[in-house]
Design a protein around this nucleic acid. Structure first.
Lengths: 169, 169
DNA sequence: CATCGAGTTCAAAAAAAATTGAACTATAGG
DNA sequence: CCTATAGTTCAATTTTTTTTGAACTCGATG
């Protein structure tokens, strides 16, 4: 038997505060349209003093290895954690990066920008469609609306560096 | 027969530019975690010179009456359109409000604020959990993280009026 | 250089979200 | 009042998204 007075720390399930933080992040990321498991993973890293391995995440959150791996893959693109050394030299250990600016910056770069860029292209196509339908008045109306869309897009682009600046320490 | 040289305008399907705008908004709203149909409805209102009735939306977008009604219900909370008189006195006609500030303002008020408010409550609960787990060092760590969450929330709240101000005409 | 196991991938399954449509409510017109 | 129809509601269905888990890759280790 190996069950001593000191229980096996890493595999024990979440304590209350961990549960609540995990759940807070799980709900939080949904506002940004991200899956629950991604919030759970980041949440647990956020509230863990020691870095965690993929296997720790699987065991403690009760999610599959696949989910954990994919979640980390996504969080990696945001730059949401660092990879550090840990107890087991074979494993990679993850430690949350807790700079809001970095998280939001990653989200803007990886999720928002691509959408805005494709939006720009699609509005460009719209410009060529304006003149193909209706009479002059109708076309004038279409043109005005397409211009409005362009202005919206420009404002959205303007907003992003501003947001990042406000969140900067 | 009632099929004259002039086709029945209101029931005809979408012309190319309408299709593209509808699809652009359908994809666009997904970034905000909203269902496709809401983007389609707003998109069609946005690109329509004449106000449209619920029935127009159903016919021209090929969606169900239920979807159209629910979509309008949601868009109404944002203040995304006006209700105006139209050809048929029995029906309500809808006309897009195309002020970005108003749309974003509605979204912040109806979607973001409630989340932030509930987040605030949950963080308050966290504060009482901090002292219940682990040794002094662990508790100090938890406390630091909970404070970090509070700061994040404060920054998010600070950001919203700023965003609205930048989008104001 | 064969084995072990950490981590990835992706088709299938499960879960969640959106849409439908039929029953319902409300209101205007006869 | 009665009827017709615009619009709402919500349980059932469909669609989409997320999660799982087993097969796989890759690199370290004996």
């Amino acid at each position: 038997m190996q069950d001593n007075a000191v229980p096996d720390d890493e595999s024990k399930s979440l304590v209350e505060i961990e549960k609540q933080v995990v759940s807070l992040f799980a709900d939080g990321v949904r506002v940004a349209g991200l899956p629950r498991s991604i919030g759970e993973i980041y949440g647990l890293l956020f509230i863990s003093r020691e870095p965690l391995s993929l296997d720790d995440l699987v065991k403690r959150l009760g999610i599959s290895k696949g989910s954990a791996s994919q979640g980390l893959k996504f969080l990696r693109t945001l730059g949401a954690f660092r990879e550090v050394a840990g107890p087991d030299a074979r494993r990679t250990y993850f430690e949350a990066d807790i700079k809001l600016k970095k998280l939001v910056g990653g989200f803007i770069r990886e999720q928002l920008r691509p959408h805005l860029d494709s939006g720009k292209d699609r509005i460009k196509v719209l410009e060529t469609e304006v003149m193909k339908e209706g009479d002059a008045a109708q076309q004038a109306f279409y043109e005005e609306r397409v211009k409005k869309l362009e202005r919206w897009l420009k404002q959205a682009k303007l907003l992003m560096p501003l947001v990042q600046r406000v969140l900067g320490e």
